[in-house]
């Protein structure tokens, strides 16, 4: 395996890590205004992800940073091409980040209500937009011979990409609900249990539609890497998640939605590989892991750092989840 391939997969790992981890805290953020009946309950919900969300968000910052370092042309083409969409994404992430910190620092109901909705918007919009962005990567966008994006903002809002966006929101919301079952107890947990089934139905239906749309609108069926196999495995995991949930094996059910997310990202990666951005104008104009990359020397330096530090990051983040394994309740947030 050459370094270009290694970095393609390392960035893949960072994105998978991001979507699994930030996936559940986006989900919790989306559910927050609907599940929390009073201020205490909302605080419980926020505190289930309190110690984690910041560390989770770093996964995408790392994915962006390594994309810049390993494949500068990918980073440059995509970030300048998706300009306005990224502005919206950034504003949503700003709102979300400060909302967690600011929300409980003033007791006025209007203040708290406002930041609760900011958490919702800041979770819903990024979940949707990341989905739209990956949908566009999967489907391809107009890229010219100069490696520049040749569409506009509305090119990105095609039906397929929007569908992937909605699918992302649905899966992350379900994933977040299952996470809440592991982190809450009492009334809230009962209420979550009541909605998981509906969330699952929506997510599974969207999975099927997205699968069919992908078969029609993308290279899903024609790639030699056989992404369709992984896509189907992701569906199986999602299917099994409901059975496990019904048997009240919530931890395993959560693991299955995590697997669905991983499989979806893997499907995208296998469909793209070795391309990083598909040109809809001319196949030769697609950016690949070879035409978009940094020098072998730089990739080797980055590889040394990544192969030491990514396992370390995983180790200390796992430790975080171990420390905060206790369920959150009204009692625990009184401290």
């Amino acid at each position: 395996m050459d370094l270009n391939t290694l970095w393609f997969w390392l960035i893949g790992v960072l994105f998978i890590g991001f979507f699994i981890l930030e996936g559940f805290d986006y989900g919790v953020g989306i559910l927050l205004p609907f599940l929390g009946k009073d201020d205490d309950e909302r605080r419980v919900l926020i505190n289930t992800i309190g110690p984690f969300w910041d560390g989770n968000e770093v996964w995408v910052i790392a994915a962006g940073g390594t994309m810049f370092g390993a494949f500068p042309h990918w980073y440059a083409t995509m970030f300048s091409g998706f300009y306005l969409a990224l502005v919206v994404l950034l504003l949503a992430l700003i709102a979300r980040g400060v909302a967690f910190e600011f929300r409980s620092k003033d007791a006025r109901p209007a203040w708290r209500n406002f930041w609760d909705w900011m958490i919702f918007v800041g979770s819903f919009v990024p979940a949707l937009l990341w989905g739209v962005a990956f949908g566009n990567l999967m489907r391809g966008v107009p890229i010219n011979a100069q490696m520049e994006y040749a569409g506009d903002f509305f090119t990105l809002l095609n039906p397929y990409a929007l569908l992937v966006g909605v699918f992302a929101v649905a899966v992350m919301t379900l994933h977040g609900a299952l996470f809440l079952l592991l982190r809450t107890e009492g009334d809230i947990a009962t209420r979550v249990r009541g909605i998981v089934n509906k969330l699952w139905l929506v997510a599974f239906a969207l999975y099927l539609v997205t699968l069919i749309a992908s078969a029609l609108a993308t290279d899903l069926l024609t790639r030699p890497t056989m992404p369709i196999v992984v896509a189907l495995l992701g569906g199986v995991a999602l299917f099994v998640a409901r059975r496990l949930h019904r048997q009240q094996r919530d931890g395993w059910a959560f693991g299955m939605t995590a697997a669905t997310i991983a499989a979806t990202l893997l499907t995208f990666a296998l469909t793209l590989y070795p391309r990083v951005m598909i040109s809809t104008l001319k196949p030769e104009w697609s950016l690949t892991i070879y035409t978009a990359s940094s020098t072998p020397y730089t990739l080797s330096v980055m590889s040394v750092v990544a192969l030491i530090f990514i396992p370390l990051v995983i180790a200390y983040q796992v430790w975080t989840y171990y420390i905060f394994r206790q369920r959150v309740s009204k009692k625990t947030i009184e401290a």
């Binding site: 910041d54 770093v58 500068p72 440059a76 940094s294 750092v305």
Partner: peptide, 30 residues
């Protein structure tokens, strides 16, 4: 600029996120 200096500037930024930013954010939460 990103295309021109990605091999250097981008690599340093990438290393920053992996080596430093994860550490800072995760342990601050803890």
């Amino acid at each position: 600029f990103a295309r021109f200096v990605g091999d250097i500037f981008g690599a340093v930024l990438a290393i920053e996120t992996l080596l430093a930013f994860f550490l800072e954010s995760t342990f601050l939460g803890i």
